[in-house]
Each structure stands twice: as structure tokens, then as C-alpha cells.
Amino acid sequence: MAEQEQDAQADAMAAAGLPTGIEGLLAVMARLRDPVRGCPWDVKQTFASIAPYTVEEAYEVADAIDRDDLADLRDELGDLLLQVVFHARMAEEQGAFDFAGVVDAINDKMVRRHPHVFAGASVEDAEAQTAAWEAQKRQERAARGDTDDSALAGIARGLPEWQRAVKLQKRAAAVGFDWPGIDPVLAKLHEEADEVRAEFAAVAAGEADAHQRLEEEIGDLLFVAANVARHGKVDVGAALRRANQKFERRFRAMEALAADERGGLAGLSLAEQDVYWERIKRGE
């Protein structure tokens, strides 16, 4: 960050009667949550109402990384940090914990789960470390009195479903329940696609419960697609983000080209629109 920008930020915080750094951020949140002189929107928020923003900010961080925009990444990390501070402040108001407690907890967890770094233990490679990490998590759950000893225990239900699918598959694979290679996974993908096609036909024929069965088969198809990505060591979220970006880029370019030549896409047949799509693809 440029020195002038830092000075300007420090001046702005001083003018508001606030310190700089993390203490300043904590003071900002305390002021925003003040029931008398705070911000009405911030004051009325709860853990549940803020949770969607927390998830959204995490995706904004991932987007900045995908775009290799470090300036934007700095800002998005700040937004994500604000979410942590927001939740910690609400917990502090309830007497549950505060931001310092959050920091202490994660420090303790990182030291505890990395004995090969902080306690003289040894680990062969990243794969072995992952296994040790999961074993440590199981021990911690047992110490808390959690009696769920399934290989799938502890996988958060609040994760995006594609991410939870991959975690379920990894846990099952850890005990040997996995396809030996990509060929049977791709065969299963084709099988699920055929079942989806059959349920579309059933819906069209007006069969009872066909739409419910279609939903189930589409879910199976997506679950296997996530497994394809896992076998290829491809992050499903990153792959889908790039696919979304590619579609948006091509569609916007198609719109612009059609607007110049035909006055826009509206009114063009699908075949005519597809001609523009192919032109954009070839241009890339």
C-alpha cells in the first residue's frame, strides 16, 4: 500500500476518534453495533442474517484470486475479516466469546493439528498429513463426547452442496470405498445421464411422481460429476466459476456482435443465435 494512502487512512480513523489496525476494526464494529449511536442496519443483524454475507464474501475472495487481482484481493480479504469481527462482536455482546477468543482458538488448533511442525513429530508427505489431520479431528470430536464414529462424521451441512459432495466422497475413499480409476466413473456418469433422459420422458408422459424422480436422478448425475472432478484433482467450484466466466464472456460478446449486425439477439432464431456463438468461439 502506498505511504500516502496509509497516511490518509490513519487520518480518517483519527478524525473518527478510532485507533488503526485490528484494534481500529474492532472499535469500528463496536461503534456500528452501539444500540444508541450505531448504524440501525448493523444493530438489528443476527448470526443467521449475517451468515449469507459471510459465505458471499468468501466467494468474492475466490473470485479475486481467479482474476489474479491482488488489489481487489486485499479489499475482499478485508471484507471477509469484517465478517469474522461482526460475528465475534455479536458473540461478545451475548457473553459467549470475543475476537481474542477466536484468535486464541485458531492458534491452539493450528499448533495442535500440526505436531510435525510444532512438536517434533514427523510426517511423510501432504497425503499423510491429511490423514493425520482427519485422525486428530476424530479425537477432538470424541473428546467433546461426539459418539458418531462414521467415516463421514463432522462434515458440515452448511457447506455448498458441491463441496459437501466432494468431502463425502473423499471420506469414503479414505476407507477404500472408491472407484479404482476414471473409466468406471465416466461410465457411471453416462449411466446417470441415461437415467435423467428416461425421467424427462416420464415427465413428458405425465407419469405420477416423475418430476420427483427427475430431481433425484439429476442429483445423482451432479454427484458423479463432482466425483469426476475429484478423480481429476480439479476443484469443482473453481471449474464451475471458470465455466460461468467463459459463458458470460462469450454471451456478452455474442450480444455485442449481434447488436452491431442485426440489432440484437431478440427475434433471432436459435440457429441464428448459434451462428454468433460459434463465431465468438472461433475468435477466441
Score class of each variant (00 low, 15 high):
205 A>N: 07
195 E>C: 00
184 P>H: 04
157 R>W: 11
187 A>I: 07
186 L>Y: 03
167 K>R: 15
174 A>P: 03
168 L>Q: 09
154 G>M: 08
154 G>N: 09
176 G>A: 02
163 Q>E: 15
153 A>E: 05
180 P>A: 03
178 D>C: 09
160 P>G: 05
164 R>N: 02
159 L>M: 11
153 A>K: 05
204 A>Q: 14
204 A>G: 02
196 V>E: 04
198 A>S: 12
172 A>E: 11
188 K>Q: 13
168 L>A: 01
195 E>W: 06
151 A>P: 13
203 V>I: 08
203 V>E: 01
201 A>W: 05
162 W>S: 10
151 A>G: 09
169 Q>Y: 07
157 R>K: 12
177 F>M: 12
188 K>D: 02
167 K>Y: 01
161 E>G: 00
200 F>G: 01
195 E>A: 03
158 G>D: 14
194 D>W: 00
154 G>S: 07
197 R>T: 06
184 P>D: 07
152 L>I: 09
181 G>V: 00
166 V>W: 01
163 Q>Y: 11
187 A>H: 13
149 D>K: 10
197 R>V: 04
170 K>T: 11
187 A>P: 00
160 P>F: 04
151 A>N: 06
194 D>S: 15
166 V>Q: 08
194 D>T: 12
164 R>W: 02
151 A>L: 08
149 D>N: 10
185 V>M: 06
196 V>D: 06
155 I>P: 05
157 R>H: 09
152 L>R: 12
191 E>L: 14
150 S>M: 04
196 V>S: 02
152 L>H: 08
205 A>F: 05
152 L>N: 08
175 V>F: 04
150 S>C: 06
199 E>S: 04
189 L>V: 04
158 G>N: 13
162 W>P: 12
174 A>K: 08
172 A>G: 07
181 G>D: 15
203 V>N: 05
162 W>Y: 12
203 V>R: 04
182 I>W: 00
191 E>M: 07
181 G>E: 14
204 A>I: 06
186 L>G: 06
186 L>K: 01
150 S>F: 03
195 E>H: 07
204 A>H: 11
204 A>M: 06
191 E>K: 15
176 G>V: 00
161 E>C: 00
184 P>E: 05
198 A>E: 14
150 S>G: 09
190 H>R: 14
197 R>Y: 07
159 L>C: 05
